[in-house]
C-alpha cells in the first residue's frame, strides 16, 4: 500500500521528495549543532525550528526564495518569543487572542494567499504550543536570549538544507516508467480475472471503482513522461486498452459477445504475463504475443465489429512489443558500457 512504487506514484513530480531530503538534512544539521552548543532548557528549540521552519520552495529565483525563507524564519522566531513571554507571564487572555487571530488568518491564507499560508500556519502552531510551554515553565528557565540563539541555530540548519538541495522537484524518469509498468501489470491482472467479464451494468460497484482508479492512475502517470516517443507509445497502449475495456456489447449476439470477451481476456492475460515475466523469459513472452497477433489476424471480420476491435488490439500489442524492445535495448547498451 505505501511501498516505494506507491510513494513515487503519489509524488511523480518529486516535490515531496525534495522536501523530504531538505527536512532530513535540516534535522541532521540541527542535531550536530545541538551537540556542539549548550543552550540549557532552550536546546530543544533548535530542533523545533529546524523541523518546522522549513517551507516548501516556490518557483521564484534562488535568492528570492532564500529571502522568503529568511523572512519566514524571522516571523516564526518572533512568534516563539511572544508566545513564550505570554505563557510565562500567564497572560491567558492575550495568548488566546493571538492564537485565535493566527488560526483565522491561516484559514484565510489557505484559501486566498497559499504562498504565505505555510508560515502563518506554523505561526499559529507555535502560538498554541509555545504558549503552553511558557505556562509550564514556572521558573522561567527558558530565557529570551537562549531562545533567540536556538532560533538562529535552527534557522541556520534550515538554510543549509535549502542551499544544499535548491531544486524544487526531481524528475524521476526511470521510476515513472517503473510505476507505469507496475500499474499496468496490476490493471491487466484484475482485467484478466473472470469477475470483470460481465456486462458493465452487472459489475459490482467496487469493481467499477477499481477499474476507474487503475485507468486514471495510468493516465496520470503518462502525463509525467517527457520522452515523446515513449509518451506516444504509452498513449497508444492506454487508449487502446481503455476502448477495449468498454467495447460495446449490449446489442451484440452471443457469438459476437463471446468473441469480444475472448479477445479482451486473452489480451489482458498476454500483457500481464509479459509484464510479470523475468528478464530471461521476456523474449519467450514476446514470441507468444506475436503468435497471438497472428491468431487474431486469422479471425474473419464478417459481422464482427468490422475488425475494429481486432485492429485496435493488434495496435496495442505491437506498441507494447516496441516499448519492451526499446527498454531491452537500453538495458543491453548500459550493460555493454
Amino acid at each position: 500500500m505505501i511501498g516505494i512504487t506507491n510513494y513515487i506514484k503519489h509524488d511523480l513530480e518529486g516535490i515531496y521528495t525534495a522536501e523530504l531530503l531538505r527536512g532530513g538534512i535540516s534535522m541532521l544539521c540541527a542535531i550536530v549543532i545541538s551537540s556542539l552548543v549548550d543552550l540549557k532548557e532552550a536546546q530543544t528549540y533548535i530542533l523545533i525550528v529546524a523541523l518546522y521552519g522549513l517551507r516548501p520552495i516556490t518557483h521564484a529565483p534562488f535568492f528570492k526564495r532564500l529571502g522568503f525563507m529568511i523572512l519566514s524564519l524571522m516571523l516564526l522566531s518572533l512568534t516563539l518569543q511572544i508566545s513564550l513571554y505570554l505563557g510565562q507571564q500567564k497572560l491567558y487572555f492575550y495568548g488566546g487572542i493571538l492564537a485565535v487571530i493566527f488560526s483565522c488568518l491561516t484559514v484565510y491564507a489557505l484559501a486566498r494567499k497559499p504562498m504565505v499560508s505555510g508560515t502563518i500556519m506554523f505561526m499559529s502552531v507555535f502560538a498554541i504550543i509555545n504558549f503552553g510551554m511558557g505556562v509550564i515553565d514556572t521558573e522561567h528557565l527558558i530565557t529570551p536570549l537562549q531562545l533567540l540563539y536556538a532560533s538562529i541555530y535552527g534557522s541556520i540548519s534550515v538554510l543549509i538544507a535549502v542551499i544544499l538541495v535548491p531544486m524544487i522537484r526531481f524528475h524521476w524518469c526511470l521510476m515513472i516508467n517503473h510505476c507505469f509498468y507496475s500499474q499496468l501489470k496490476s490493471f491487466s491482472k484484475i482485467m484478466s480475472h473472470d469477475d470483470f467479464y460481465e456486462s458493465f451494468t452487472d459489475l459490482p460497484e467496487s469493481h467499477k471503482n477499481k477499474i476507474l482508479m487503475h485507468q486514471s492512475s495510468l493516465m496520470n502517470i503518462t502525463s509525467f513522461v517527457q520522452d515523446k516517443v515513449r509518451l506516444n507509445l504509452y498513449l497508444h497502449i492506454l487508449n487502446g486498452l481503455m476502448l477495449i475495456c468498454y467495447w460495446p456489447s449490449t446489442a451484440s449476439d452471443k457469438t459476437h459477445l463471446k468473441t469480444i470477451n475472448n479477445i479482451r481476456s486473452a489480451t489482458f492475460t498476454q500483457i500481464y504475463h509479459l509484464l510479470d515475466a523475468k528478464k530471461s523469459k521476456r523474449a519467450m513472452r514476446i514470441a507468444q504475443i506475436k503468435l497471438f497477433i497472428t491468431d487474431l489476424q486469422k479471425i474473419p471480420y464478417g459481422e464482427f465489429c468490422n475488425g475494429e476491435m481486432i485492429r485496435l488490439t493488434i495496435d496495442v500489442l505491437e506498441s507494447l512489443i516496441s516499448i519492451t524492445t526499446i527498454d531491452n535495448k537500453n538495458k543491453a547498451v548500459k550493460a555493454m558500457e
Binding site: I2, H10, Y16, E19, G23, G24, M27, L47
Partner: peptide, 24 residues
C-alpha cells in the same frame, strides 16, 4: 529519543505525499 525524532520527522515529510491517507 533524538534518533527516533529524526526518523519520525523524516517519515512525517514522506507521508505528506499520501494526501488521501491523512491519518498516516
Amino acid at each position: 529519543h533524538l534518533l527516533f525524532l529524526v526518523i519520525f520527522a523524516a517519515l512525517t515529510l514522506w507521508s505528506r505525499a499520501f494526501v488521501a491517507l491523512y491519518y498516516l
